[in-house]
């Protein structure tokens, strides 16, 4: 059976684990806490600091939801996880550090995958800090040559918000597809 994946990426604390949990129909598998030095010595497919969830579709098939490790030291995992992925959800914490720099970093890190598929940006914690605004994110995306990309404020705990992000990214890939 085909292994379809949607990838959730972004810096530590942006809400990837929460978002995967919110969208998943199964209790999510969380391995973030196990991401110690010892764990890194174990083979990748069982080790890894990642989050896993799944959406069960009406026909019995499954869409796998993977949250990538946020720490750049796990960046070797990113390429492995994106293999076979159909879309990227990039979450950025608006209240911490320099969000636009984070955006640039992750766009660069996943640029190959994004060019093959599509990306939607979820801006978290915008209620805690209102700047940068969504238009500032779009300006960065324009500068980086990604064109008009869905950029939404999200509360990663809200299933509706996460599902809207997924719906948006699929609509970019194939707007004609309809439920």
């Amino acid at each position: 059976m085909s292994h379809y994946k949607i990838i959730f990426a972004g810096p530590v604390g942006a809400g990837k684990t929460t978002a995967v949990s919110a969208a998943s129909d199964i209790p999510p598998v969380r391995t973030d806490t196990a991401a110690s030095d010892e764990v890194r010595d174990i083979k990748p497919q069982t080790t890894v600091a990642l989050d896993y969830g799944a959406m069960k579709l009406a026909d019995g098939s499954t869409i796998h939801l993977y949250g990538t490790p946020g720490q750049p030291r796990f960046d070797f995992m990113w390429e492995i996880l994106t293999e076979g992925g159909i879309a990227l959800i990039l979450l950025i914490d608006n209240a911490r550090g320099d969000p636009l720099r984070e955006l640039r970093f992750y766009l660069g890190a996943f640029s190959g995958f994004i060019r093959k598929t599509a990306v939607a940006i979820g801006v978290t914690h915008a209620d805690q800090r209102s700047t940068p605004r969504l238009a500032d994110y779009q300006a960065e995306l324009d500068k980086a040559g990604f064109g008009c990309v869905p950029v939404f404020e999200v509360d990663a705990r809200e299933r509706r918000d996460v599902c809207l992000l997924i719906e948006a990214v699929l609509s970019v890939i194939d707007p004609v597809a309809r439920a």
């Binding site: 379809y4 959406m55 579709l57 009406a58 599902c163 997924i166 719906e167 439920a179």
Partner: peptide, 15 residues
């Protein structure tokens, strides 16, 4: 497209 239609059906419910 077939896969997307099924996913979108799921997401419509969430929405």
């Amino acid at each position: 497209r077939g896969l997307f239609k099924r996913i979108l059906g799921k997401l419509l419910g969430a929405r």
